[in-house]
Design a protein around this nucleic acid. Structure first.
Lengths: 231, 231
DNA sequence: CGCAACATTGAGACCAGTCAAGCAAAGTGG
DNA sequence: CCACTTTGCTTGACTGGTCTCAATGTTGCG
């Protein structure tokens, strides 16, 4: 979790992240406000309940957003992939905990100053709105997946979503990818249990829809079958 | 579904809706672009799949946002209450169907022109962002409610959310309110079935947490118990 | 190697879904 | 006004998918 100055030249998501809509001068200003940090799997990047003071962009790796219930159980409500944003804009406290799922790189900015720039730069505000709308869509898609579908459909739908996220180009899904989540985390995200996730993956492999390599790597061997499993 | 000119003077949500952030001149311009319409329960206000051409504000009543699966089943992903917004900004087609749950009043605007004004008015853009972030929060709260909780907790949590939405002032919940949804719609929203919703309401009443008056009206008789049921 | 974390598999219990019947309220038409 | 239909709600009995509990297998790391 070292803190270093930001350099956009080497940034792999410089063209896709929210920063991309800023002109040279404004981006320079933003770069001077922020810090580039790296986190290891399991590190807490932003803690729920704390005053919302930072806002960031995920440069590489994967993170989860989760809420902790009063009874101590964790619920994952979203994953964020590179070029996605982290942290709560507006509103005083972060409501979700942001945790690194893999080792990852992040650009972090003081929230207030980031909001200030957004207020001055309509292009940035528009981009943030667009991003938030996409997140809203994804959240509702997840809602659709979890509500009223059985375990097989949830897992299949989740695998397809990951395949899409893993594709470097937007055009079509990756044929194979690494699960950034443990079985337990998948269960939390999908509203089920570790055992059911495990059994379902076994069943999908038995049916020829996927092939597992080790416990984390998934190859989609029969995409139509996987799509059909979603219903 | 008559179309009439907009008049903000009598609008009950003039101070809370997105329009409130506009100055006199801009609001006048917006008013001239839009139309005030009324819908009856069951009417489709915006159809999913169609080109996204309209954007609106809910003035009174309640509406649902739903997605239709390929197999024809409907999934409700959110409810919208007065002062909330309707329709898809950016993106070519509406992905969700907007349906009136009660008779309701709506101000509708041509989407492109609304987006144009948002581009010129940073205050409107900021307000739209803030609203969208709140919707995102609500969507994730619903996700939290549906994922990994049993039927009793889902229904209890939903009733509490409705009590909050029904309170005219933000300070505390309404003690009683009308369900804007049928049992079937509640089931679609909560990811369960009509029968389970009905049985759960019966159980909550038996336990003294609520009292039903007719099939639609709910009085919260023991709020702590209802909160406890959510877990 | 040996521990710790994670994953798989099995057996039994239980919650909720399905199927089915009956009831209540509101509308329709003779 | 009443029979009839429609729509929505409730309740019961049964079934099945998923959760729980428990044991075993696997991976990775000090």
């Amino acid at each position: 979790m070292t803190a270093l100055p930001i350099s956009c030249d080497l940034c792999p998501v410089a063209d896709r992240a929210v920063c991309a809509v800023l002109d040279e001068a404004e981006r320079t200003r933003l770069v001077q406000l922020g810090r580039h940090r790296t986190f290891a799997r399991g590190d807490t990047i932003i803690a729920a309940g704390a005053a919302a003071t930072t806002f960031g962009t995920l440069v590489s790796g994967a993170v989860k957003l989760s809420a902790i219930d009063r009874d101590g159980s964790e619920r994952i409500v979203a994953l964020v992939h590179p070029a996605g944003t982290l942290g709560q804009l507006f509103g005083g406290t972060d409501r979700l905990t942001v945790t690194a799922l893999t080792s990852c790189e992040v650009c972090l900015f003081p929230r207030a100053q980031f909001e200030g720039i957004a207020g001055e730069q309509p292009a940035l505000a528009a981009r943030l709105l667009k991003d938030t709308l996409r997140e809203l869509d994804e959240s509702r898609a997840l809602l659709d997946l979890i509500g009223g579908r059985d375990a097989r459909a949830r897992v299949a739908g989740f695998l397809l979503a990951l395949a899409r996220a893993a594709s470097t180009h937007g055009c079509h899904d990756a044929a194979q990818f690494d699960l950034p989540l443990t079985r337990g985390e998948m269960a939390q995200l999908l509203g089920t249990t570790i055992e059911t996730v495990s059994r379902t993956l076994t069943a999908l492999e038995r049916d020829g829809a996927i092939r597992r390599e080790g416990t984390r790597r998934i190859a989609v061997t029969d995409r139509p079958r996987l799509v059909e499993a979603v219903g």
